[in-house]
Design a protein around this nucleic acid. Structure first.
Lengths: 218, 218
DNA sequence: TGAAGTAACTTCGGACTCCTAAGTTGTCAA
DNA sequence: TTGACAACTTAGGAGTCCGAAGTTACTTCA
C-alpha cells in the first residue's frame, strides 16, 4: 500500500474477498435481527433457536441440539433448563441412549418455536428483489459454499440433500436432473433442501462421490 | 401441512426462504470462526472487530464504531476500555466534536487489527470453488441484498459504492458501465466496493435515484 | 451573561452467552 | 463387580449486550 488514492484496478480486493465482506455484513444484520426478535418474544436468542430447531426437526437430545446450533453442551444445558422452567419444553427419556433425554416443546413452546422459525424471513424479503434467475444463481452459490464449509467442519452435516443417503445427483437430463430416492421424485438444482427432516447422512466416501457427480454437468 | 411425507413439489419451501436458511447457516459458521480466531489471538470477538475496523477505516470515534459494528455505545465503550488497558489503542481528542475522542491503534494494536481483518478469509476460500461466473452472480445478489437491508435500517449505510456521492451508475455501455467520480475511473458491476474508505454518503433522494439507475439495464 | 439544550460519551446493574474443567449417573462389557 | 463410556449437569469466569442514569464540554437562545 502506498499513499496513492485507491483506483479501481487489479489492485482492488479480489471478488472472493468482497463476497466474504458482504456475507459478513449480512451476518451482522442477522445477528441483530435475531436478538431483537427474540427479545420481543420474551426469549433469548438461543432459546428461540432451540425452540425453532425442535419444532422443525422433531424431538432431539441435548447433544444433537449442541451440534446443530454450533454451541457446546453446557450452553445448551443452561438454556434448556430455563426453557423447562418456563414450561416451554419437556424432557423425556431417550430410548436410543441411556443417559440422554429427548426434548419436546409444549404447545406453548411449539407456538413460540413456529414463530421463531420465521425470524429469518426478513431476509427472504430482501431476496425478493432479485430476479428469479439471480435467485437461482445465488442459491447455487450458497449450496456450494455450505458444502465447502462442511468439509472444513464449520457447519454440521445436517439436512442438506447433497450429503444425504437418498440423493442421486445428475441421473437424467432436463430441468430436474437429480433424484430423491426416499420419496422417489425428480429434483431440480434449485429445489435442493438445506434442512430436510428426512435427511440421513451418507458415508464419507459416498458424500465425496455424490458431490463430484453433482458438480459434473449442469 | 398434513401428515404426508414431503414431496419435492410446489409445496416445498420457496427458494427465497431456502436462501435465507442458507445464509443463516453461513452466518453460524462466521460466528464460530470469529470467536475462535479472536480467542487464539488473545482477544474477544468484538475487540478483534474494533481493531480491524480501526485499521481498515482510519481513526474513528466511539459512536462511529458503534454504528459500523451494529452494537450500542455502552458495549463499545466497555470493549475500548479493555483495549486501552491492553495498550492496543489510544484515545485522542477529536477536533470535529467537543466530547468525542478519536481512537487510534498502537503499533501492536495495528498488527493485531491487520490480522483480524483476514478472519473472514476462510470464507473467501470457500468461494473459490465457484466458477467466476457464479461468483459474479453471487456478488450481484449480495449487493442487492445489502441494499435492501440498508433500506430497512438493518445495515449501516457505510462503504458501499451504490450509496456514495461519487458513484455514477450505468453511464456507458460495455463491461464497465459505472463510474467513480472521485478517482475518475470506470467501474464494472463486480468491481463495486462494499467497504471503500473514501465513501461519502449521498443524500436519501440521491441514493434512491442512483439505485434505480443502477438497476436499469445490466 | 447566563440558562437550557445537545452530543458524545461513561458508569452501573442485570440478563445472557459461551467456554473449560470437573463432577454425576445410568448402562454395558469384561 | 469393576471399569469404561456416553450424555449430560454444575461451577466458575470472561465477555457481550442492553437500557437507564450520570458527566461534561460546547452551543444556542433569551
Amino acid at each position: 500500500m502506498d499513499t496513492e488514492p485507491p483506483y479501481f484496478d487489479a489492485n482492488s480486493e479480489p471478488l472472493a474477498a468482497r463476497i466474504a465482506t458482504g456475507l459478513h455484513k449480512i451476518g451482522l444484520a442477522m445477528k441483530q435481527q435475531a436478538w431483537q426478535q427474540a427479545n420481543t418474544a420474551g426469549l433469548s436468542a438461543t432459546q428461540g433457536q432451540i425452540l425453532a430447531t425442535l419444532v422443525a426437526g422433531g424431538p432431539l437430545s441435548g447433544s444433537e441440539l449442541s451440534e446443530r446450533l454450533g454451541v457446546t453442551l453446557p450452553t445448551i444445558s443452561d438454556s434448556v433448563r430455563v426453557l423447562v422452567e418456563k414450561t416451554l419444553v419437556t424432557k423425556s427419556p431417550d430410548p436410543r441412549h441411556p443417559r440422554a433425554s429427548l426434548l419436546t416443546p409444549t404447545p406453548k413452546g411449539a407456538e413460540l418455536g413456529a414463530r421463531a422459525r420465521s425470524w429469518p424471513e426478513f431476509m427472504a424479503d430482501a431476496v425478493q428483489d432479485l430476479t428469479p434467475e439471480e435467485q437461482r444463481a445465488f442459491f447455487a452459490g450458497i449450496v456450494k459454499m455450505i458444502r465447502m464449509l462442511q468439509e472444513q467442519g464449520l457447519i454440521p452435516l445436517t439436512g442438506m440433500c447433497v450429503t444425504c443417503k437418498h440423493f442421486r445427483p445428475n441421473v437424467r437430463t432436463g430441468p430436474a436432473p437429480h433424484h430423491c430416492a426416499l420419496v422417489d421424485a425428480p429434483l431440480s438444482s434449485d429445489q435442493l433442501r438445506l434442512d430436510c427432516q428426512e435427511h440421513e447422512r451418507a458415508s464419507e466416501t459416498a458424500r465425496r462421490e455424490v458431490w463430484e457427480q453433482f458438480l459434473r454437468r449442469r
